[in-house]
């Protein structure tokens, strides 16, 4: 049997108790899988990703990640290093003045030294096909470049899982193609939330639908 990375058991979550977003949700992710999560706007797809890395806490059920149950903020510290979440809006993620600083932020937080962080930055930018972008100013990048830089920032932490929240959102055709090619070449297990049929077609090994607060295969 392949290694199980995430298991969500009987998960329940509501911003407003009268209208629960998720209820009795079951989900698991194994190494090597690329699972596409489909569903209508407001079905709770982003909420699901945020629950997996502890940005939100469930009101019911259990989150198991990398073989251990995760409850408190401290439990999630290493989950966030091992499962990289890519935000829907790159502008929410980029906050350092230059690309290299932004990409180095994660490795530095994980305790990397200056040289190590430098290596991680170079390697991650190479992986997304933006070598030499280190000195660029983040807010002057194009939409496609911002997306790739945020992906590099996540890859620089060398995660085992990628959680992608509508990665191809608002990208033009060329940038989208490039992103799909890059993602297809990565070894990580992925959870992909997307409305982009072509992207799902080319990347996903399994599809699930989030409907009525539950996962349907």
């Amino acid at each position: 049997m392949t290694q199980e990375l995430f298991r969500l058991e009987d998960l329940g979550f509501a911003h407003d108790p009268a209208r629960p977003v998720l209820a009795g949700l079951e989900f698991s992710l194994s190494a090597g899988e690329r699972v596409a999560v489909l569903g209508d706007n407001g079905a709770g797809k982003t909420t699901l990703l945020h629950l997996m890395v502890g940005l939100l806490r469930p009101q019911a059920g259990r989150v198991l990640a990398f073989g251990a149950e995760r409850r408190r903020e401290a439990d999630f510290h290493d989950v966030r290093a091992r499962a990289g979440l890519l935000f829907q809006d790159p502008d929410d993620q980029l906050f350092c003045p230059t690309v290299a600083e932004d990409v180095a932020f994660g490795p530095l937080n994980l305790g990397a030294g200056r040289a190590e962080a430098q290596d991680a930055v170079a390697e991650a930018l190479e992986q997304v096909g933006l070598p030499g972008f280190g000195e660029r100013v983040t807010h002057k990048l194009s939409g496609g470049e911002k997306r790739l830089v945020t992906l590099a920032a996540v890859l620089a932490m060398r995660p085992e899982v990628l959680l992608l929240d509508e990665p191809s959102n608002a990208l033009d055709r060329a940038a989208r193609e490039r992103l799909i090619d890059i993602l297809a070449g990565l070894p990580q297990a992925m959870v992909i939330v997307s409305h982009d049929d072509d992207l799902v077609e080319r990347l996903a090994t399994r599809r699930v639908v989030l409907r009525g607060g539950r996962i349907e295969e």
């Binding site: 940005l55 966030r80 906050f95 994980l110 920032a153 932490m157």
Partner: peptide
């Protein structure tokens, strides 16, 4: 709301309340 999302993005990348100090 925006600062909450940025804070979330920082926590995801291992931010624990202080910036790493480089030499």
């Amino acid at each position: 709301e925006r600062s909450e999302r940025i804070h979330a993005a920082m926590r995801l990348r291992g931010f624990r309340g202080h910036y790493p100090i480089l030499d």
